[in-house]
Amino acid sequence: MGGRVVTVTSGKGGVGKTTTTANLGLALARLDKRVVVIDADIGLRNLDIVMGLENRIVYDLVDVVEGRAKVKQAMIKHKQFPDLYLIPAAQTRDKSAVSPADMVQLCNDLRKEFDFILIDSPAGIERGFRNAMAPADDILIVTNPEVSAVRDADRVIGLIEAENKGPARLILNRVKMDLVRKGDMLSADDVTDILAVKLIGIVPDDEAVVSASNSGTPVTLQDNSRSGQAFRNIARGCAARTYLSCSLMRKAGC
């Protein structure tokens, strides 16, 4: 069986899927896991620039699927972590260039050499989503404590259950604690009351995430960052394959 395929998805765009994938990839690499992250958002390549690898792309996911490049040729090694690789999305093609079966085949090859294959899913619930979902062992849904993002997350949870791919697990991103305290933002408990899934991570809203993306060095590399700590906690649950719920993490003092 080998490595585990973890798909990061959301339904709504702009909730922090790519940031989450990049940070989990780096945090898992810091735990000495062999990791490959795949940008499945064909046509809207992003994971490379968030991870600071944008200048080293030669081949992409579509080149691999269409046989112009071997998987190893398309994998970009991270500067700091030699066991972390990126397979970038094609920038000039659309999602129909890859099929769900292509993704299953690619991931089955990668499982032999990696502990974790993280897939950054595109937003939406169409072809790109199905591509990202097909090979998944674990599915992580990223959402924000906002009505639109929670509604779309619920839709995606329903689709995942309908495909028998679950259980989906939830990461609540960009939580502003001051607003939650004032009663002006949904709390983690509110969101878990609404969505019937296990919450495995609460990531506080953090300006450091923006500057980290600006420089291509994801925030999880900053030891004193609260959002970075949240991503490291999620990665530990992922690495142990237990995905501790947030209430358990609180009890454990994380």
């Binding site: 619920d154 004032k182 002006d184 009351d193």
Partner: peptide, 15 residues
């Protein structure tokens, strides 16, 4: 009702 409570109520209804 706070805006967060309103959000929760509305979401539960629409979902």
């Amino acid at each position: 009702e706070s805006s967060a409570q309103a959000a929760k109520r509305r979401l539960q209804f629409v979902l």
